[in-house]
């Protein structure tokens, strides 16, 4: 089989892009849900907003670096090819990055905005037109919910695009099933949620029970959805045509078997699910009281992130080893 042409830069991008989409999605949900006319989970929403733009920006930079001709990346934006997932995805990435930056801005407090602006060297600051200056001083906190709603479809788009990029290639049977896009989407949203669990627990302000309830119920739902995608992916694949069956052999006895079952399914999906379910048991059963054990929550969050990375690693490399010959 041929050597892979997409390697770790692409794995990292797929992970980081998905992570940002998940962060934005979870944060937007936390913003959107209201209690007494205010965001119900303001600290979660704020953490998500502060973190969301960065992984995707780093990921996009890696994408450019992976090009044979990085200095030509702009050409993508001067030829719109609607049948190319990469062309559509590039526009989505740009739209999402700008939107997530605007969303971040809306979550900054006035003193934070001002101290950020104070960091701009005086020479440049003096040149900024008064109109833009006023704009930067604007309190955008009222737009948070609107930005959150506007961002839902775009964040979902970025999350699902990472899967579509691979799935829309009929030459690679490992990818070319109608389940890969959803698998990547749910994995992306789950890793964003897990990152928020980790971020919220590292926060100086002690975490509230209702915040953890929100994050846990979301992550458990997403992991279960992911399981409902991964298992049919394997079972239907085994019952599919020879090319698909041969492709699946990569993770069923082939070189990626251990990585897939141990590192992705075991440590990266089922183990965090078990930890979260165990922690969440009092809420599900309605018996006992829900405690937070930061150590367990941090472990579960970290493992979900690890599993998300493994999924992308397996798919990028195993997929390229498959074909029709």
């Amino acid at each position: 089989m041929r050597e892979p042409v997409w390697e770790f830069l692409i794995v990292n991008y797929l992970f980081l892009g998905g992570l940002s989409a998940g962060l934005y999605f979870a944060s937007a949900l936390a913003t959107w849900i209201q209690e007494d006319g205010r965001s119900a989970y303001p600290r979660i929403a704020r953490w998500g907003a502060l973190l969301a733009p960065w992984p995707v920006s780093l990921g996009s930079a890696l994408l450019v670096l992976d090009l044979g001709k990085p200095m030509r990346f702009w050409k993508i934006f001067f030829h719109f090819r609607w049948r190319s997932p990469m062309s559509i995805g590039s526009w989505l990435l740009v739209a999402f990055t700008f939107l997530s930056l605007a969303y971040l801005w809306s979550w900054l407090e006035q003193d934070e905005r001002q101290s950020l602006q104070a960091r701009i060297p005086g020479k440049i600051r003096k040149r900024i037109p008064a109109r833009v200056q006023r704009w930067l001083d604007l309190d955008a906190s009222l737009w948070r919910r609107n930005l959150a709603m506007l961002g839902f479809p775009i964040a979902v788009g970025v999350g699902i695009y990472t899967g579509v990029l691979l799935g829309a290639v009929q030459a690679r049977p490992f990818w070319n099933t109608n389940l890969v896009a959803q698998m990547f989407l749910f994995s992306a949203l789950s890793s964003g949620t897990a990152a928020l669990v980790v971020a919220r627990l590292m926060d100086r302000e002690p975490v509230e029970l209702k915040e953890m309830r929100f994050l846990y119920s979301m992550d458990i739902t997403l992991i279960v959805l992911e399981l409902f995608i991964v298992l049919p992916y394997l079972i239907h694949g085994e019952l599919s045509s020879l090319a698909v069956k041969e492709a699946l052999a990569q993770v069923l006895g082939g070189p990626f078997t251990i990585v897939f079952w141990l590192f992705f399914m075991g440590i990266g999906l089922l183990l965090p699910l078990a930890i979260e379910l165990y922690e969440f048991k009092p809420v599900i059963l309605g018996k006992g009281t829900f405690h937070i054990q930061p150590r367990w929550a941090l472990t579960a969050g970290g493992l979900v992130l690890f599993g998300g990375y493994m999924l992308r690693y397996i798919f990028v490399f195993a997929g390229q080893a498959t074909g029709f010959r």
Partner: peptide, 30 residues
């Protein structure tokens, strides 16, 4: 799949790469 249209097909069916527009994303190889 080519995002820039560097991969193209002539009227007579020949599939070519316009090297000036190719950014080297390698999507077509895959």
């Amino acid at each position: 799949v080519c995002p820039t249209g560097a991969s193209w097909q002539r009227e007579d069916g020949i599939v070519l790469v316009n090297e000036d527009d190719c950014i080297g994303c390698k999507y077509c190889i895959i």
